[in-house]
Computed example of a mutant assay.
Amino acid sequence: MDQFEHQLVPTNNIKLSLYTAGPRDGRPVWLLHGFPECWYSWLHQAKVLANQGYRVLIPEMRGYGASSAPEAVEAYDLITLCADIQGAMNYLGHEQVAMIGHDWGAPIAWHLALLEPARVKAVCGMSVPFGGRPRQPAINMMREAYKDRFHYIVYFQQSGLAEAEMAADIPRTMRLMMHGLSNSQEGNTLVQDKPADAAWLEDYIDPGSPPHWCSEEAFAVYVKTFEQSGFHGPINWYRNFERNWERTAPLAGKQIEQPALFLIGDRDPVGSLEAYTIKKMPSVIPKVEQHVIADCGHWIQAEKPAEVNAQLLPFLAAHFAAY
């Protein structure tokens, strides 16, 4: 980690922990992580991008690691999370950026493209597609569809339960999540055939070690991240679907006009859950390129870094060239 600089950036009434690499005058590329991830998940992209002359910026998102983690649920709505990055860009004097996000970082990247059309020149989302503002909060549809069956997002709505379960043994939690989302053939941890009010991970056997794609060094950073800040803040991101829907009303019907890239693994369970949204993406992002990474689960940038970089680098070269 010696090649990274670290600072706490004041933004949007919080402190945002930010790791940076690459030349200071390079074109800024933001890398936004998801759940349950950490900034270090972008290691393989950061090194390559920095070597290509880009200025790489990787925040620990609100609620994670050394960043501020407010207690209130409403402190984690989508527009507030976007404002964290907007404020950091203001603080750093960024006038043009490329925005890249994975998992929950993808909706932040997509919405920053909508909110900042002049500043976000190119956008990439990984694993989570963008289908525009839904007709109602997504959680309403989830509760109806999974009222008799377990779904992790519905489970997350119960205050205190998920964070306590996940924090009870953080290394075990991370091993189960990494293996369960690496390969949908091994058992989808997101939707399960058990009662809707059951505990989440209790039925799974600890594999004992992280997947082959996660080094011991990387795994230690993941564990330290959640030992430092817990899971309350990250899970609060999932408790704002109604508030997100309300606060994004001014964006209803708007398209993302910038050049865009969407990447997803062929074994990512999100692919089946979001199949309809993936199919309709070109109707709301006219300039989107979509690519499926073979033999790859949800942790796409870590599982298949060479394949991801092979898509990412030419996309940025075409639409956001380094100096």
Rank of each mutant, 00 (worst) to 15 (best):
M1H: 14
M1P: 01
F4N: 03
E5L: 11
V9H: 01
N13E: 14
I14R: 04
K15S: 14
S17N: 12
D25F: 03
D25G: 02
G26S: 07
G26M: 02
G26W: 08
P28I: 05
G34P: 01
F35E: 09
W39A: 13
W39N: 04
L43I: 09
Q45Y: 04
K47D: 12
N51I: 00
Y54D: 07
Y54G: 04
P59W: 09
E60Y: 03
M61T: 11
A66L: 15
S67K: 02
A69D: 07
P70K: 08
E71F: 14
E71D: 14
V73P: 00
Y76I: 01
D77S: 03
L78E: 05
T80N: 12
L81I: 03
C82D: 06
A83Y: 06
A83M: 07
G93L: 00
G93Y: 09
V97C: 06
A98Y: 13
A98D: 01
M99R: 00
W104G: 00
W104E: 05
A109K: 08
H111Q: 09
L115K: 10
E116Y: 00
P117N: 08
V120Q: 11
V123E: 03
C124K: 05
C124P: 01
G125H: 05
V128M: 10
R135W: 13
R143L: 11
K147A: 13
H151V: 01
Y155C: 02
Q157H: 08
Q158L: 07
G160W: 05
G160T: 02
E163M: 00
A164V: 03
E165V: 02
E165Y: 10
A167S: 15
A167V: 04
A167P: 00
R172Q: 14
L176P: 00
M178D: 08
N183S: 05
Q185R: 13
E186F: 13
G187L: 08
Q192H: 06
Q192I: 01
P195E: 13
A198R: 06
A199G: 12
W200G: 03
W213C: 04
C214Q: 03
F219Y: 12
K224Y: 11
H232C: 02
G233P: 00
P234Y: 11
I235W: 06
N240R: 06
W245N: 02
W245H: 15
T248F: 05
A252F: 06
I256D: 09
P259H: 09
A260E: 06
R267F: 14
D268R: 03
P269L: 05
V270I: 15
S272Y: 10
S272G: 07
I278E: 08
P286W: 13
P286V: 04
V288D: 07
Q290D: 01
H291C: 08
V292D: 10
D295L: 07
C296T: 12
Q301I: 11
E307R: 07
V308C: 15
Q311R: 15
L312N: 02
P314V: 04
P314S: 11
F315N: 04
F315D: 05
L316C: 01
A318V: 00
H319S: 03
